[in-house]
Design a protein around this nucleic acid. Structure first.
Lengths: 221, 221
DNA sequence: GGTAAGCGGAGCGGGGACCTCCGCTTGACT
DNA sequence: AGTCAAGCGGAGGTCCCCGCTCCGCTTACC
């Protein structure tokens, strides 16, 4: 009697195989967060405690493994934009978006690479959606008279990128340095002459800067 | 009768050799400016119209060739700081330094790599000298009451770096985009509530941004 | 206990960068 | 004009990194 044929996707993996698959995904998630999109397959496999061969049996290629993890990151980012746009006070919403999206990119190198480096239709679509959301927020803030009128929604992403570059340079030496410049820039964005917001973080002095520069590697070609 | 012995450095090069040496230096200068410190020896030689062998006969190694060109760049940068510090109006001096040092790093990728990436005692010393000069300028600006008092000299270099990162991302698509954020940041630095300076440059819109991102390669590991 | 599924990791192929080697060319000096 | 050291080009050696494959051994499952 014929056994019910199973397509490969239906037949469950052997227990050890499934466990290794999960380990690989977890390892990739972790390394993507820490080191960005250009982790190697060997790194992911080794960090997961399995051989490279095992990695390639589960995922046809490095790209397939990485793409399997992209969507969850993009979803988080979009959720952030939606949350900011939903804020009652549009200025608060704007500040929250700039601050949290920078923080997110600083904490997750892979997300930053994705948003700035990757050629992928999904990512372009996400950028468009986020910009649409931000457009509404910026318009509201402008109408409320708190935002200088010549600032546009496309400025928001650029500012987050700019701040995350500060974080790149400061690295582990001063991972929160970018917040200092966040405040400077926000004070430049605001309309009122209400005076300066106190800067939240000390500068990076000479000796710290030297350490940061020593550790910094400008990113790939 | 013994010929006057010549040390290798005294004996003049044959005319063609000297000409090729000059071509190599010119080629390296050009490529350093355009592409940064990680130009390869093959590129320099080829761009000079000579073979690699010739390049290595004149310069013991890639590093030797590049280091031969570093000092002239650092000198330019220091001159900039001195000029800014010499301005009658300290605010103007500060603006001029941020603007011109960013412009310089945008125009000269090699200088930016040098200032941010390179481990070299000379560079660290230069940074120290520049910061000393800026310290005086910042103090004068603060005393004049135009600069928010919590800004320090180390902020100045960081801001220039931040702006030049914008230029990196915008690339050839919008090489002057950074000036927009320069104004935003300067408005954040200024004390008076005199209102916002008009932004000098349009934002980078969606389609431009996509083009810029397509062309952008995050820098080397 | 039999067997297909799974495993690890040495190693292949390809690319890039630095640098060397050597047979040919050329400037300089008689 | 002839000699020849100095100079030249660029193929290719070496090394390293990365994606991916292959195959002899191990293990989960029935």
């Amino acid at each position: 009697m014929a056994v019910q044929p199973l397509t490969p996707s239906e037949r469950p993996l052997r227990r050890d195989a499934e466990r290794n698959r999960q380990r690989l995904l977890a390892s990739a998630r972790e390394l993507l967060t820490e080191r960005g999109l250009d982790v190697t397959m060997d790194e992911v496999a080794h960090h997961a405690g399995v051989g490279v061969g095992t990695a390639y049996r589960r995922f046809a290629s490095r790209d397939e493994l990485i793409e399997a993890l992209i969507d969850e990151r993009l979803a988080d980012f979009l959720a952030l934009a939606d949350a900011a746009a939903g804020a009652a006070d549009p200025w608060e919403g704007l500040v929250s978006f700039v601050e949290r999206s920078t923080a997110m990119q600083v904490a997750d190198r892979g997300l930053k690479d994705l948003l700035t480096g990757h050629q992928l239709a999904r990512v372009a679509r996400l950028r468009a959606r986020v910009n649409a959301v931000l457009g509404g927020l910026v318009a509201r803030a402008r109408e409320a008279g708190v935002l200088r009128p010549d600032v546009e929604e496309h400025d928001v992403g650029m500012i987050a990128f700019m701040l995350s570059s500060v974080a790149d340079l400061a690295g582990d030496v001063r991972p929160d340095l970018w917040r200092r410049y966040l405040v400077l820039v926000l004070d430049g964005l605001r309309v009122d002459g209400a005076g300066a917001t106190p800067l939240p973080v000390p500068v990076m002095g000479t000796e710290e800067a030297e350490r940061a520069l020593a550790a910094w590697r400008p990113r790939r070609r």
